[in-house]
Design a binder for these strands. Sequence first.
DNA 1: TCTGGGGTCCTAGGACCC
DNA 2: TCTGGGGTCCTAGGACCC
Length: 445
Amino acid sequence: MNQSSDDPIHRTIFHVDMDAFFVSVEELFDPSLVGKPVVVGGQREERGVVSAASYAARKFGVHSAMPLRTAAKLCPQAIFVDGHPERYREYSHKVHEVLGHFSPLVEMASVDEAYLDMTGTERLHGPAMRCAERLHAEMKSSTQLNCSIGIGTSRLIAKVSSAKAKPNGVLWVLPGQEARFLAPLNVGDIPGVGKVMEKNLAEMGILRVRDLAKLDDGELERRFGKWGLALAGKSRGEDAGGWFDAAVGEHSDPKSISHEHTFNEDTADRERIESTLMRLSEMVGRRLREGGYFARTIQLKLRYKDFTTITRAHSLEQPTQMDHEIFENSRRLFLRNWKQGAPVRLLGVQTSNFEAGPAQLDLLEPARDGLPRNDRWQKVLAAADHLRDKYGESTIGLATGMKGTFRERTHENPASLPGRGPEKKSRKDERTGSPQSHRDTENSE
DNA sequence: TCTGGGGTCCTAGGACCC
DNA sequence: TCTGGGGTCCTAGGACCC
């Protein structure tokens, strides 16, 4: 095989990550927030965690996933802001649109983060670095938002380098330099290595990626199984294992759809619990119908006051997308497993094991148990969905859902966006000697 | 300090079948 | 009457990510 510039032996992947996304969007709606310590995710006394913190707030040690009350103690002067998922969705679309100008192969990994396969676009867009700079500038002018861009031969390298480029920078790891780039980093900088794995590795004396790279693959596999093997590959910058291996831009169907709710105060009130289960079942059912999915497995999640959490699942003979079936099953699971009288902190309803719709025959079966037939139910639900679209979420609630549903304050949390959560805290300015790097210094004009 | 919500993937044991 | 081996499905739990 002869190689030319059109036939590269490696891929060129961009990872584009928006800087302090939620906070930056909130600043666009309320410019008085600019430059101040801002915490997005809820009010200071609420039960919940930080979704995003401004750089000014981070200076006080505030970071995402931290309890709001802790953040309030660390930084009493911080401004606490409720999240606005619709705003983030709107800006996420704008981001997506900008990215589309640079590659047809764009994959939004979450609301504020995307991978682009830029392989072979040199002729069109010029060298990677120049292209990234243009992208960076266009992102700012089109959305008013800053981003950081990592460039590498794999998703892994692109992702790690974008984190090192933060804030508002571009970092390119040249082909062939992957191992050198990773060597001095902490093992925890590798996506997929969390607290637990980091601790396990530390106990073996492995702190940096270079220590990891010294071990042979067999050793890692023996100690950590399949994951260990993937880790060995990662230490060399390879997209080893699972999701990372997938081509950029391949849309895949969801594997599960769920909703959960943490009560403002723990409760043992059965009515309140059941109406919450109803509401969660309706939300799940609705999304199943929107996506055209039929679920065979329904799972209940139950968290007590002391944070002990159990899940209990049941698989149906025929897959469903109907509220009442989801509700009846989760209710049964609840009643069978609840330690009667024990205060409940959280309830969750999850559906999974998606299949094609139920057999047509089933729809034609006569009514059982005096219930309307399923096809009638489908019509009722479709009508309810329509009403909710038109007049808002509070218009319609079926049966139990009506009773106590809206007693609980439904506080829209930014993290309730699909695939979105707290922004990873960036250990900023820890950037190491990189083959080629550049940072916008004249930001925030 | 008291810990959200929505996901993915992996492991491991038991049931069940051949 | 002392105990196989593989495959698949189901369930529960946990690490991890944003």
